[in-house]
């Protein structure tokens, strides 16, 4: 029983980072109705820029964090310009294929610049661990949880209580209606991309700083986790993305503990497949008609 609770706790900590990744995906998909599968790789570019300032100038966490944001932002803008803004609106498939092509570029670019298998990333400051009633919560995990919560609060304010948020939600609802109500679609789409990049960069930063090292495979990893969490939660809903991230984290932690690493993958993908068939609206139960549209 204690194990079960402890695993859940660990799962929530990991899941909060997944939730941020899922939210990044959801923001982009909600507004563009197109899948940016290079979302993970753009965060990967960010953390490598962070690692670079760390290695080059032995910069600390703050500078590395700043560099991570800048890197993720630049990579996202690059993807937005080439794969989304430059491709006409009804060619969603082309955007997806194009973002994949840029993913390949980014991954190889980073691998060339950082030939080692792993690269060091500045770690979080040492934090006191918390122990209550036999349960253990690492200081790192607590910081991850708190940061993720903070990002969620800020996002919520931005989306539901700001003019930009209103424009974003209008665009997510219907591009045609948004255009005739004089919303500058291109601007909103661009800014949404940037916002998603920053949210993703927070997740990337937290994960990289907890691990203390990074690899170019982070891109694939982040894309997979974000996509899975988004789909489990329910495509097109922020609440769904949050729930999906947490569920994914908890399921992974439990499966890892009780069944081992190999079975964990089987459980996660099996769950995802079943979830899509049985609950296409995700656990948040969204009926988002746009999601069923042709990609």
């Amino acid at each position: 029983m204690l194990d079960l609770v402890q695993n859940t706790l660990d799962g929530i900590a990991a899941g909060s980072a997944y939730a941020l990744l899922a939210i990044g995906f959801t923001l982009i998909f909600g507004v563009m109705r197109r899948l940016n599968i290079a979302f993970g790789p753009s965060i990967m570019v960010g953390i490598f820029l962070g690692a670079w300032v760390h290695v080059q100038w032995s910069a600390g966490l703050i500078e590395a964090a700043l560099a991570t944001f800048i890197g993720a932002l630049l990579a996202s803008i690059y993807i937005e310009r080439l794969s989304f803004a430059a491709i006409r609106g009804d060619a969603a498939l082309a955007s997806m294929a194009s973002s994949f092509a840029l993913w390949m570029q980014l991954e190889q670019g980073v691998s060339l610049a950082f030939p080692g298998r792993t690269t060091a990333f500045p770690t979080l400051p040492p934090l006191p661990d918390i122990q209550i009633a036999g349960l253990f919560l690492g200081g790192d995990d607590l910081l991850v949880l708190l940061s993720a919560g903070l990002v969620l609060l800020v996002l919520h304010r931005l989306i539901y209580h700001s003019h930009f948020g209103l424009e974003m939600r209008a665009l997510a609802d219907s591009a045609e209606a948004a255009a005739v109500s004089r919303i500058n679609i291109n601007r909103v789409a661009f800014l949404t991309f940037c916002l998603a990049a920053l949210v993703g960069a927070v997740a990337g930063l937290l994960i990289a700083a907890t691990d203390g090292q990074i690899t170019p495979k982070f891109g694939l990893w982040a894309t997979m986790k974000g996509l899975i969490a988004m789909m489990i939660g329910g495509l097109g809903s922020l609440r769904g993305a949050l729930l999906g991230g947490l569920v994914l984290g908890i399921v992974e932690a439990q499966a890892q503990w009780y069944l081992g690493a190999a079975a964990r993958e089987i459980v996660v993908y099996g769950l995802l497949f079943l979830c899509l068939i049985v609950l296409p609206g995700g656990i948040a139960g969204v009926r988002d008609t746009g999601a069923e549209r042709k990609l």
């Binding site: 789909m231 190999a262 079975a263 099996g270 497949f273 068939i277 042709k294």
Partner: peptide
């Protein structure tokens, strides 16, 4: 047979899930 009732992103991710399930199963 079940997946063809899905469409768009749902179908794409369902097929991806099945493929990863296959790969993870081959691992054991």
């Amino acid at each position: 047979w079940p997946a063809a009732r899905l469409s768009g992103v749902h179908y794409a991710i369902a097929t991806l899930a099945f493929a990863e399930l296959t790969r993870a199963s081959l691992n054991v």
